[in-house]
Design a protein around this nucleic acid. Structure first.
Lengths: 160, 160
DNA sequence: TGACAATATTCGTTTAAACAGATAATATCT
DNA sequence: AGATATTATCTGTTTAAACGAATATTGTCA
């Protein structure tokens, strides 16, 4: 018996529009995916999701590093908050700062060996997660799902 | 030109599996949906998403109210944390507590008129949101998306 | 040179969430 | 009646995020 989103939400009434149903479905899926993920990161590596994301970004541009501004752009955070986040990561020696030689205002933040090791230790679980959470859906359907999500993301409006 | 999730993520490599792509897609969609929502609730009504959810739940069982334990079950929160959340809502007179007559250990938490008014004021925006965010995708495709998400939610594994 | 812009930081503050531990009040069961 | 369980609270603490405001340093440009 196929389970509808309304059923999952223990909602009596059907949805008033396909948009409503899709949005609620995405929100519910998100909640069920993100919470375990955040939990896992915290217990396993004592990282918040933002911290993990920043580390991932930095691994992506290793060994060049990124400026605080660039990090802020990619994570939609404001400069002072980036500074503090980097502070916390620096305190644990997962990243390091170096003044740029060419423009001495900017600071290059780069992931350290310890940071890379931490991420590498997490990688197997990160690899495992998709199958653990989505393994019960056929690959053809997952491809279809990705296709549709791509369309949703592409040109998604703003709210409010 | 269709946009893939890999493109949205500014990722060079394609995904190693459909599961990975779908999971990342869901996470990204979630982030882009949930952040504006949280932002909106905060600026418009000074509510956190958990607070809003609790109010919604209470509206659903108005005027009977729910015990703290029941609220905790539905929001996966511990009792002391429920108490504090209810504290905050009580301080703003959005909910009220009443000792149960039959079992004087339990406290019935119920949404107040003020809380109902607050929710009602939000409702139009809540109605508007789905179209604002997803209006660019055809209804047929959204129905398809909901169908797939339903399958994902149904029998989703656990992680770790 | 001097005004202005850009970059990162510092400081202070507020907030909600999360967790642990202890306690009061009441029910229930033997 | 007494032991135990349940329900909600209180207390204390830690944490990260978020916001505002100010500041030092450096670069840019007229």
């Amino acid at each position: 018996m196929p389970t509808t989103i309304a059923r999952q939400l223990k909602q009596r009434r059907p949805f008033s529009s396909p948009e409503q149903e899709a949005l609620l479905g995405l929100r519910m899926a998100a909640a069920r995916l993100l919470a375990p993920w955040a939990q896992f990161l915290k217990t396993e590596a004592d990282l918040s999701t933002s911290q993990y994301n920043v580390l991932r970004i930095l691994r992506g541009s290793h060994p060049h590093g990124l400026t605080c501004g660039e990090i802020g752009e990619r994570t939609v955070a404001r400069d002072p908050d980036v500074t503090r986040l980097v502070d916390r990561l620096t305190k644990r020696a997962l990243v390091k700062r170096t003044r740029s030689e060419t423009d001495r205002r900017v600071v290059q933040v780069d992931i350290t060996k310890k940071g890379l090791d931490l991420l590498r230790g997490l990688d197997p679980h990160v690899q495992r997660m998709p199958r653990a959470l989505l393994g019960h859906v056929s690959q053809a359907r997952l491809r279809h799902l990705s296709q549709l999500i791509g369309e949703v993301l592409d040109g998604m409006g703003t709210f409010p």
